[in-house]
């Protein structure tokens, strides 16, 4: 069971959090200007990284605040926690086949 370090409440068990999948997907400012392919890409396509994934979590049974996490999706090691809107920290590349 993951131990996630909520930037606002400190380390808490996984069960207190909800998952928000991939981070840093900005909603297009002018959706109408996108063609169907680009809209589908925004809406559905996922990086689904095997390796270090930048993802969003929310402390839903705590402070209810969203934040970003860099997590290895193979080892489940959490490499960084950083607030919404912040740029991801520099992290080692990890590649798995």
């Amino acid at each position: 069971m993951l131990l996630i370090d909520c930037p606002y409440c400190g380390p808490r068990a996984e069960v207190e959090f909800s998952y928000g999948n991939e981070a840093h997907i900005a909603r297009p400012l002018q959706p109408e200007a996108l063609d169907d392919d680009d809209w589908a890409d925004y809406l559905f396509m996922k990086t689904n990284r095997k390796g270090v994934m930048l993802e969003r979590w929310v402390h839903s049974h705590g402070c209810r605040r969203w934040f970003n996490v860099a997590r290895d999706t193979v080892t489940y090691e959490i490499l960084a926690v950083y607030p919404m809107g912040a740029k991801p920290p520099k992290l080692p590349e990890r590649s798995y086949l």
């Binding site: 993951l2 996984e14 998952y19 689904n48 990284r49 997590r71 080892t75």
Partner: peptide
């Protein structure tokens, strides 16, 4: 489990 995971293992909850 609700999060992306390639670990072939699940969590206790």
């Amino acid at each position: 489990d609700k999060y992306v995971g390639y670990g072939q293992r699940g969590s206790l909850p």
